[in-house]
Design a protein around this nucleic acid. Structure first.
Lengths: 141, 141
DNA sequence: ATAAACTTTAGAGTATACTCTAAGTCAAGA
DNA sequence: TCTTGACTTAGAGTATACTCTAAAGTTTAT
């Protein structure tokens, strides 16, 4: 079973432009062409696109994603390298989640600050509630 | 107490170029200048930079960050809008953490897949372990 | 058969976020 | 006084990731 470029675009919520761009950069090394030159996406190519999306969403550049697929095409001899790339990526995602959680605390503080400011009216929040200044400094300094 | 642009750059691991760029875009509306035209960063300006970093790391564009600071400069009448922005941002961060967690599972599957491939040698992992194909499809489809 | 819809390529254009250069200003130390 | 180093501006250049146009060829529906 094969898919046209616009069917794949629809499936992954991308544009055909973007898929052609990825192909041009070497991110879709196994996509074939029909006798008249139209791209034919196989199930394996769909898995490729799904993996591109996963790596992209977790912060890899398209160049890094291409490097990964270049290794994949070389076959079993590159399994160690690809595994190492995924181990590195796992670490990066875990670090990013930690960073987001730290920043989430800052945003939650800001919401609490604004709620307090609304409660106390025109007054200065930090002079009314000195412990909030301490909390601010702990989060932001 | 005031800081020069290079002191602030060092403190936040940014370059002076970047800080001038942020100033030009309107992200540092309260930074003053000395009589000879040199930027002087106050404690409040440092808090601004810390907030820019927080918002940037959680996915806001510089344009969106500027909009936030433009509201902040307008004073108490914009507190509701700023609070709403932070509530929206909290939601976005939570969604992003969920997305990263989903993608982390995919990366972890890949690592397990490669480990299995190494264990079974040249053989096809999915024909040896059909449940791994089911797991792949569950994660990626 | 033919019109509409889809695809191809090369290459140009856009948006974002820097990053740097050039030319000049200013303050402090030898 | 002069040199060094940090700062200023406007504006050019870079990297990334699309996004689109133009002109041509292909496929599908009536």
């Amino acid at each position: 079973m094969f898919y046209s470029i616009s069917q794949v675009a629809k499936k992954f919520n991308l544009t055909a432009y973007t898929l052609r761009y990825y192909d041009k950069l070497g991110l879709l090394p196994t996509v074939g062409k029909s006798s008249s030159g139209l791209r034919r996406f196989s199930e394996n190519d769909l898995n490729c696109v799904a993996m591109i999306e996963c790596l992209k969403e977790t912060g890899l550049t398209l160049k890094e994603i291409r490097d990964y697929f270049v290794l994949a095409v070389k076959g079993d001899e590159t399994i160690d390298m690809r595994m190492q790339m995924m181990i590195n990526q796992k670490k990066r995602i875990e670090d990013e989640i930690k960073s987001l959680r730290r920043n989430l605390k800052k945003i939650e503080f800001k919401i609490k600050y604004y709620q307090t400011a609304k409660d106390v009216g025109e007054a200065n929040v930090y002079s009314e509630y000195p412990q909030m200044l301490a909390e601010h400094d702990k989060l932001f300094k």
